[in-house]
Computed example of a mutant assay.
Amino acid sequence: MPNQIVVAGALIAGSALLVAQRERPPELAGLWELPGGKVAPGESDAAGLARELKEELGVVVMVGDRLGDDVALSPTMTLRAYRVTQTGGELYPNDHRALRWVTVDELQSLPWVPADRAWLGALTDILRRETVFPQEKGE
Rank of each mutant, 00 (worst) to 15 (best):
R129G: 09
L31K: 11
A115E: 08
E55W: 06
D105S: 13
E139Q: 13
I126Q: 12
V39Y: 03
G48A: 08
M1L: 11
E136Y: 07
L57H: 00
G68W: 00
G58D: 00
L79F: 02
A10Q: 01
I126S: 10
P25I: 02
E136T: 09
R97G: 07
D65K: 14
D70P: 04
M62C: 12
P41Y: 00
L110I: 00
G89C: 05
L123F: 01
D69T: 02
A118F: 01
E90W: 05
L99S: 03
M62I: 09
L17G: 00
E139L: 14
V104C: 13
D45H: 07
Q108H: 12
A13Y: 04
T131A: 15
A40R: 15
A10P: 04
D105H: 09
A81I: 02
V61W: 05
A10Y: 03
N3A: 12
P41N: 05
V7C: 15
E90K: 11
V71S: 08
W101K: 05
A98W: 00
T85Y: 10
D116E: 14
A10T: 01
L31Y: 04
S74I: 04
V84N: 07
A47R: 08
G9L: 07
I5H: 12
P35A: 14
D95C: 14
D45C: 11
E33Q: 15
G37N: 04
T124E: 12
P35T: 01
L53D: 00
D95G: 14
S44F: 03
P93R: 05
A20D: 03
V104N: 10
G68A: 05
M1H: 09
T103A: 15
W101T: 02
Q108E: 15
A13L: 13
W112Y: 06
L79Q: 08
T85G: 11
T124Y: 10
G14N: 04
L120I: 01
A13N: 13
V7D: 10
G48Y: 00
E33Y: 02
Q135R: 15
S44Q: 06
A72N: 06
K54F: 09
L107G: 04
M77S: 14
T103N: 15
A46I: 04
F133M: 13
A16K: 12
T103S: 15
R97E: 10
P75L: 09
A20G: 00
V6S: 13
E23R: 15
H96D: 14
Q135S: 15
G68M: 06
T87G: 10
I12C: 08
P26S: 09
R129C: 12
D65E: 15
Q108L: 13
A20P: 01
D125P: 05
